[in-house]
């Protein structure tokens, strides 16, 4: 779905990635690799340890569908600073394979500011065409992640892009990620009026900042 933001043309994709055709940049947010390992190490639940593979395979499919020149990860790519080292060997190999296919830019996030993946440039934010690409939305116009937005429609809730005047917020791409309601106080105040694009089979657009209507299925 075509998205005009800050005078630029983007394409929001049903899988939850953002494509910038002019630059051939593929932008993703919040991969949260290493989530289950971190929870296990903390003595919590032993969750199915398949989420790194799952996340990377979905990312691979997106990269193979497009002529990607640069992949931009908008922060929280890893669940913590130790995650890059603790990754299982096959998953790490898959990540290295993907990283070798194009340029990578890792924007640092609140979970992985100390991470050193060694697989591309690491930067706290990118300024391009009078807008900023960063992890947490700041002074707009900017493109960011961090909040894992979700939107409700017709009794179903799905991860969603939020598009406001000053902020474009990406859904979390990682398999083990929850979400924050786009109509809740935090995201309403941040994004203001605009659109939510629900991910899934197809992208579905609905307005933001309206009182949501609840209909029973």
């Amino acid at each position: 779905m075509k998205v005009d933001f800050a005078g630029q043309q983007f394409e929001a994709r049903p899988a939850g990635t953002l494509w910038w055709p002019e630059r051939r940049w593929l932008i993703v947010a919040d991969l949260h690799l290493g989530k289950s390992a971190r929870m296990a190490a903390r003595g919590g639940s032993l969750l199915p340890p398949h989420e790194d593979q799952d996340t990377l395979l979905r990312l691979k499919a997106e990269m193979e569908a497009l002529p990607v020149a640069r992949l931009v990860s908008l922060g929280d790519a890893f669940d913590d600073a130790l995650a890059p080292e603790a990754m299982r060997a096959p998953d790490r190999a898959l990540l290295e394979d993907l990283a070798g296919r194009c340029d990578w830019t890792w924007v640092t996030g609140n979970h992985d500011h100390a991470a050193v993946p060694g697989l591309g440039e690491i930067i706290s934010e990118i300024s391009e065409k009078a807008m900023t690409l960063r992890h947490i939305a700041g002074e707009g116009p900017d493109i960011s992640g961090h909040y894992h937005p979700k939107a409700r429609l017709g009794g179903t809730t799905r991860p969603a892009f939020l598009i406001g005047r000053a902020h474009l917020v990406l859904p979390a791409f990682g398999t083990y990620t929850g979400g924050l309601d786009c109509d809740g106080p935090v995201l309403s105040a941040l994004v203001g009026p605009g659109l939510a694009l629900l991910t899934g089979q197809n992208l579905i657009a609905r307005p933001l900042g309206l009182p949501t209507k609840r209909k029973r299925a």
Partner: peptide
């Protein structure tokens, strides 16, 4: 469900 969601949207 997709069709109903699209209709509601």
């Amino acid at each position: 469900r997709e069709r109903m969601m699209a209709r509601e949207a």
